[in-house]
Design a protein around this nucleic acid. Structure first.
Length: 739
DNA sequence: GAGCACTGC
């Protein structure tokens, strides 16, 4: 027997012995008999890999494809690989996957694994999902933004009681798979559908509480020392098995590793990774921005007699699985990006994890054998400071892009949309307001022509607005690379060593100066071009302290954006405008149409004030090429804001007031109350007509009068501009034909 | 004169 076929038969035996295999026939029947089904089972139950195979073998693919969503790319790819292997198919034939930049499917594909974002894109192109007979939403308990939106969409427009599956030749079946959390809630949400429970195959993990961290430490005081102490106790007092420590970020992970290294030496024998004969502790940091080759060694088994201790961020909670972990040390905290409506900002902050998250962390110790979880916080902290469940992403994030997607799918009433957990109304109103400001929706909340173009781009709507402006002037070559560069992680490397730091800073300053200086957006654009045109792009990056990995992904994003734009430009009514002026001004004016919501004006000294109505006092970040040139500046736009010792603006560009003068009133003229009423109204023609007259009446009355006339005026200007654009487009087409 | 958790289209 060859090695590969032996491996294959082992796999098949494994699949047969999985807890799910006994329920095979009942599961297939349950899917067939119901529109909605909730399937629950812990990790190791086999639901992700086996259920699609059962449905395939029962012939259900004949009525349409079987689609399975995952919140993460790696999961979609690895599961598809495993399933195609188990079924003895070539990956990309009957079983395939699709993630951004990687479509491994063909005409023959009937079982398709994909990210939830991919399925959402498919719905935009084909709202009835006519190619599918079954859609499976996996890992629903993670409550990713896209999965939550898909849940609502599938409930409302595809299988809803109100609409049914009308327009489809066969009804769509939806399976929602979730760990054994909140399954009653899911079932209730889906009209009281049946819940199918599959036993898991994990090992017991016993958890214990500590006493050092209590309710008074809720703001995340120094828990690094305590984590280190507990980890060392585990090392010196527990049986063999590796340790996984959860902390919140790179700097404290490095601090903890240093401390562990220093103290382990004292309690331990000498240790040396190269010398496999001595006993000891192997300390390994793990966080997302770490180079991939360094991450790789985390997964290697430690040398005999050596205990591995991985000190990680939340990346080890779901994204990466490390074999051999028997002990967990849980700090009880996580770094989370939360949207703060009060200040109108996203703030990255350290917060206590939820109880379900703590259980998830503990579960990482029970994958191969029984494990132990040491929580450094007290029982009282658990009771008083930790929520039952993590606040779902949909309630903590900016909804601008999501609301546009929903509107483009015909969900006019975005407040009444069936959310599994409803976001605060304020969050939805903020999104509507932004969309209105970017001309993606009109005063009545309807998607504009521009909005229909905008939804096609996987970018923040503001950035898309700037890109489309540039495209209308025919200068998209300026904005496409920039949009790509702003979509990837920070491209500038800043090493820890002071000497190297100086060297890197110097290189970065030189790049900024060479790009013209005084414009961080232009620097990004130039870096993209220089690197791309270089004979050896990776060497160029190394030389200039730039992340090659980030640049590579910027290149593929630019290609993708370019393809989307080309497709849209072929449409008849793509806007066309004419601009006379120099290129630098053109570039910055295009930016202004998307970034006028991010305008700041210098107040006193080096302090600026935002113009979004909050009037936040802000400073230019020292990494900006405008830093220490503040006195020469008056107005500027910025890409993002960061809150540390001060509120800093990063990626900044000076502008003239005249360029935003027309746009700025838009920040204040729109009435959220008005938008909220609009948001609640139905698409019904009669309702629209009624709201029009009601709104016209309100706009011409009382204190709103001035605002109303201004709104009317601007909309007139906008429509004139649109008409002019259409005329120019037709003219160009005629000329083209004549040639 | 500074320090970014994790995903995804």
């Amino acid at each position: 027997m060859s090695k590969s076929s032996k491996c294959e038969s082992q796999r098949c035996d494994e699949a047969k012995s999985l807890p799910i295999s006994r329920h095979r026939d009942a599961l297939v029947r349950a899917v067939e008999d119901h529109v909605f089904l909730v399937v629950t089972g812990e990790t190791g139950s086999g639901k992700t890999t086996q259920l699609p195979q059962y449905l395939y073998r029962a012939g259900l693919w004949k009525a349409g494809n079987i689609g399975i969503t995952q919140p993460r790319r790696v999961a979609a790819i690895t599961v598809a690989q495993r399933v195609s292997h188990e079924m003895r198919f070539t990956l990309g034939k009957e079983v395939g996957y699709q993630v951004r930049f990687d479509d491994c499917t063909s005409e023959a594909t009937v079982v398709k694994y994909m990210t939830d974002g991919c399925l959402l894109r498919e719905i935009l192109a084909d709202p009835l999902l006519s190619k599918y007979s079954i859609v499976i939403l996996d890992e629903a308990h993670e409550r990713s933004l896209n999965t939550d939106i898909l849940l609502g969409l599938l409930k409302k427009t595809l299988c809803g009681v109100d609409k049914g599956s009308e327009g489809r030749s066969v009804p769509l079946h939806v399976v929602v798979m979730s760990a054994t959390l909140e399954t009653d809630k899911l079932s209730t949400f889906l009209g009281g559908c049946p819940v199918f429970t599959i036993p898991g195959r994990t090992f017991p993990v016993t958890s214990s509480f500590g006493s050092a961290i209590g309710p008074k430490d809720v703001n995340g005081s120094s828990y690094v020392n305590e984590v280190v102490r507990v980890a060392l106790n585990v090392h010196s007092g527990e049986l063999a098995g590796d340790i996984l420590v959860f902390l919140t970020g790179q700097s404290e992970i490095e601090k903890a590793c240093d401390l562990l290294y220093e103290k382990a030496e004292r309690i331990d024998y000498r240790y040396d990774v190269q010398d496999q004969t001595v006993e000891g502790l192997l300390i390994l940091p793990l966080y997302g921005s770490m180079p991939t080759d360094q991450q790789r060694q985390i997964f290697l088994a430690p040398p005999t007699g050596i205990r591995k201790c991985v000190v990680a961020t939340n990346i080890a909670a779901t994204s990466l699985t490390i074999d051999g972990i028997k002990y967990i040390v849980d700090s009880g905290f996580v770094k989370q990006l939360n949207h703060n409506s009060r200040v109108g900002m996203d703030i990255l902050e350290v917060v206590p994890i939820s109880k379900s998250e703590a259980q998830q962390r503990a579960g990482r110790a029970g994958r191969t054998s029984a494990g132990k979880c040491f929580r450094i916080y007290s029982n009282e902290f658990w009771e008083k400071c930790m929520l039952e469940y993590t606040v779902p992403e949909i309630q903590r994030t900016s909804l601008t892009a999501v609301v546009l997607t929903l509107k483009c799918l015909g969900v006019h009433d975005v407040i009444g949309f069936p959310y599994l957990d409803r976001p605060e109304e304020r969050l939805i109103l903020e999104a509507l307001k932004q969309l209105y400001q970017f001309d993606a929706i009109d005063r009545r909340g309807r998607v504009t022509r521009l909005g229909e173009l905008m939804v096609e781009f996987p970018l923040h709507p503001g950035l898309t607005r700037a890109l489309l402006k540039a495209a209308s002037f025919g200068c998209e070559d300026l904005l496409l690379p920039l949009a790509a560069m702003l979509s990837v992680e920070n491209i500038f490397i800043r090493p820890g060593h002071p000497e190297k730091q100086k060297e890197a800073d110097k290189k970065h300053r030189r790049l900024a100066a060479k790009a013209g200086g005084m414009n961080d957006f232009a620097t990004l654009l130039s870096v993209f071009q220089w690197c791309k045109d270089s004979d050896s792009p990776s060497a160029w990056c190394k030389e200039n302290w730039v992340h090659w990995r980030a640049l590579k992904s910027a290149f593929s994003i630019e290609t993708q954006l370019c393809e989307i734009l080309l497709r849209l430009k072929q449409k008849r009514d793509f806007p066309v405008e004419v601009f006379t002026g120099n290129k630098s001004e053109l570039f910055r004016r295009c930016l202004c149409t998307g970034y006028f919501t991010n305008v700041a004006r210098r107040s006193v000294g080096k302090t600026f004030s935002t113009m979004d109505g909050h009037g936040t006092a802000v400073h230019v970040h020292p990494s900006s090429s405008l830093f220490e040139h503040e006195a020469e500046l008056d107005w500027l736009i910025f890409h993002d804001m960061m809150v540390t010792s001060r509120v800093y603006l990063r990626t900044v560009c000076p502008i003239r007031y005249e360029w935003v003068k027309e746009l700025l009133p838009k920040l204040h003229q729109v009435d959220v109350y008005e938008l909220s009423n609009i948001a609640r109204e139905e698409v019904d023609e009669e309702e629209v007509a009624k709201s029009e007259s009601k709104e016209a009446k309100r706009l011409t009355e009382g204190s709103d009068k001035d605002v109303a006339s201004k709104l009317e005026k601007r909309n007139d200007e906008a429509s004139v501009c649109d008409a002019r654009a259409r005329y120019l487009q037709r003219k160009l087409e005629r000329q083209h034909k004549a040639l």
